[in-house]
Simulated assay, not measured.
Amino acid sequence: MTTTSSAVQTTGLPFPRTEYERRQQRVFEAMERANLDALFVTACGHVQYLVGYHGFGSYFMPFPLILVPGQKPTFVVREYSLSNVRLESCVEEIVTYREQFDFAPVCAAAVRRFGLRGRRIGLELGCWNLAPADVSALQAQLPDMEFADATRLVATEAAVKTEMELEAMRIAMEMTDVAVRTFQQSLREGITEAELAANIDREVEEAGGVVRAAWGTLLFGQRTKDSHGSPKQNPIRNNEPAFMELAGLKNGYACGLVRSAVLGRHAETEFLHDLSIEVLEAVISAIKPGATAGEVDAAGREVLKRHGRPEFLNHRVGYQTGINWVERGNISLEPGATDILEPNMTFHMPIILRGESGYLIGTSEHVVVTERGSEILSQTPHTLYRA
């Protein structure tokens, strides 16, 4: 086990240290309201939100950020990743372990140093990066502690963006819009998904951004029946649909967008797209401070009920965005959800409908909740593009 308390380099931080301190303070206040004496933050997006480190080193071992009100954060990480964590986080107190079997004993020792015997610890049980075996090991090492589910605690605080965060998201969306325009302008008979993806990456890079089209969804023709799919050597033919869902990136913040097109004519997907626009616009109209996530979802489903097509939508109408494209445990615009929308929350609403023949086509918008409604971030229309 290694502990470092010396000043850390912060050249990898996208925001000032004071911004991370502000975020941590908000979480400390939320912990007090939840009656938590300590919090283990393990979801990569939540860790990045609080200290800057992207968490990639934790792909097979948890890297918990231990938060205790009134104390400096302690980061428990794999020794192999220590140099990256020092460079890319604002944490001064770093404790290391080498192998999986060291994880729980080292975490327990870090907790005991805070004098928290018999206290209540929150775990992100509903997020990625914390396996049931990790939880069991922690409970075995800390039998006198009470563990509680704190899945939504950081997510709820991170939902409301600062102007710094919104600026990063606006820049990310500018790159997404470059990707959309390239997608539309590149469509011609015979071009493959992979070739179009390469065009997108090149144009976005020339614009000074990052989009990584190969990691997103880009599909032509019959492959638009797949719910997700990276670009392949699949050419588009005349009278076939095309579908993309990509996100520009800035400082870890992703702004995803769905756009669809038809080369020539394709009656079924054109009908689906017209319906998706109507659903999307109803969802956007329902977004405002004080509305619940469930009410927003219901507004979209009501459109499909009126058309007698409720089965066309088999997923939620949207989700909270920010660091990473999406994080498990964040606010979801789904049936019955009770989360209340606030100004400066951001959401992506992909309205993708499955038709009777299996085609998946739709559109989306990425919005910021404002004092009176919402602001659409994209500058590209959500109408169907016809090439």
Rank of each mutant, 00 (worst) to 15 (best):
T3M: 08
S6Q: 10
A7L: 13
A7C: 05
T10S: 08
L13H: 09
P14N: 06
Y20H: 07
R23L: 08
V27P: 00
A30S: 13
A30H: 06
E32I: 09
A34V: 03
A38Q: 01
V41R: 05
Q48A: 03
G52A: 01
H54N: 08
G55P: 02
G55D: 03
F56E: 08
S58G: 15
F60P: 01
M61F: 08
L65T: 09
F75D: 00
V76N: 05
L82G: 05
V91S: 02
R98D: 08
R98M: 02
F114V: 01
G115M: 01
R120P: 03
R120V: 15
W128D: 14
W128H: 12
A131I: 06
A133Q: 15
V135Q: 04
V135E: 08
S136Q: 15
P143D: 11
P143S: 11
E146C: 11
D149M: 10
A155P: 06
E163P: 10
E165M: 04
R170T: 12
Q185Y: 06
G190H: 08
A197W: 09
N199C: 14
G208V: 02
V210H: 05
V211E: 07
R212M: 06
F220C: 02
G221W: 08
T224N: 02
K225I: 03
R237A: 15
N239R: 14
L249Q: 04
C255Y: 01
S260W: 09
I277P: 00
A286M: 09
V296T: 10
H315C: 00
G318Y: 10
N324W: 12
E327T: 13
N330T: 15
D339F: 12
P343K: 11
N344H: 15
F347T: 02
I351V: 15
I352S: 00
L353T: 09
Y359T: 00
Y359P: 00
T380R: 10
P381A: 15
H382F: 14
Y385K: 07
